[in-house]
Simulated scan of single mutants.
Amino acid sequence: MSTDYQQARAALGHRLRELRLTCPDGRLTGQQLATRLGGTWTKSKVSKLENGKQTADAGDLRAWASATGQPEAYDGLLAQLRGFESHIRSWRRQLSSGHRPVQEAITAEHDQTRVLTIWESTLVPGMLQTADYARHVLTRHATLMQSPQDTEDAVRARIRRQEGLYEPGRRYRILMWEGAMRALVCPPTVLAAQLDRLAAVIGLDTLELGVVPFAASLKIYPGGGFWVYDERRVVVEDWHAELWLDDAASVALYLRTWNTLEASAVYGADAQNVIHGARQALT
């Protein structure tokens, strides 16, 4: 977890402590506040929130503001929470209701984007996945994260997002590492159909699909995947969370990284040859 995230959570905890100590009918102890809040609240939870050891959710903040007699403080608390959650979105919290809400959130980001720039080193990008391939990827991720299995809803949401490939005025700049086309994250028959899909979309006027072959001379190591939405925001995926970065310096860094990787990519017929080689390897 980043230092910036910890500092932001600690600042929110400090504000919560202020509200407890400035309660209009007199300062409350942690135990007294927990008693007022009732339910699953304990003195330990109050302490963890105030000391930045646990992240509150919107319901926690509303209850806290009300219990301390200062409901008008809720909007400010929520703004603090949204400020740092917009940068680090843990999978545990995002997937508490399954993968479908996550897919719908990213679809909303896609809908306001005209130029989407993607690098993927381990998987075929969601924008180009077949339903069967997406099903295996989402199922395995849900199993790892121990989250609700709403796979079919999530698959439909992901596939629906691909309609953008056929909308005039949109532009998709997608780069893939050859390893992403060879990783057996699904049965070979499913991967074969996925590779056929990749070969079929080359030539769409909205899509620039480049492949960085194993044999290419690299100017930088492949690294993890990321998605740049116009020049407005970049989303980077890690095992514990997604990072949503919207500061100009971060966006510029990831675009520069993409351009460096693109220098090793092939397109058109050469990309088809790499895809064909991965397809042949399956048989």
Rank of each mutant, 00 (worst) to 15 (best):
D132R: 15
V235L: 12
A200I: 03
E163P: 00
A200V: 04
A199V: 01
L16D: 04
P188D: 08
G26P: 01
V155S: 11
I202G: 12
Y267F: 06
M1K: 12
T42S: 15
W64D: 09
R140G: 14
E178A: 05
R160N: 10
L261A: 03
Q129S: 04
V274K: 05
A193N: 12
V235F: 11
A131Q: 13
A193W: 00
L12V: 04
P188I: 07
V137Y: 11
T139W: 04
R62F: 01
L175H: 04
Q70V: 04
L81G: 14
R170G: 05
H87D: 08
V228C: 08
H240R: 13
A278S: 15
G224F: 09
V46I: 14
T113I: 02
E18C: 07
V185L: 14
G126E: 08
L282Q: 10
S217G: 04
M145V: 00
R256W: 01
W227E: 10
F84I: 10
A11C: 02
E120K: 11
R256V: 02
P71T: 11
Y133D: 05
T107H: 05
Q162W: 04
A63C: 03
W244V: 07
R114A: 13
H136N: 10
Q149W: 01
A216L: 02
H240Y: 02
R17N: 05
G268M: 05
A67M: 13
R92E: 11
L28R: 09
R89V: 12
G223Y: 13
A248K: 12
A67D: 08
V155A: 13
S2E: 14
L128D: 05
L49G: 11
S86G: 11
Q94D: 12
T29C: 09
Q194R: 13
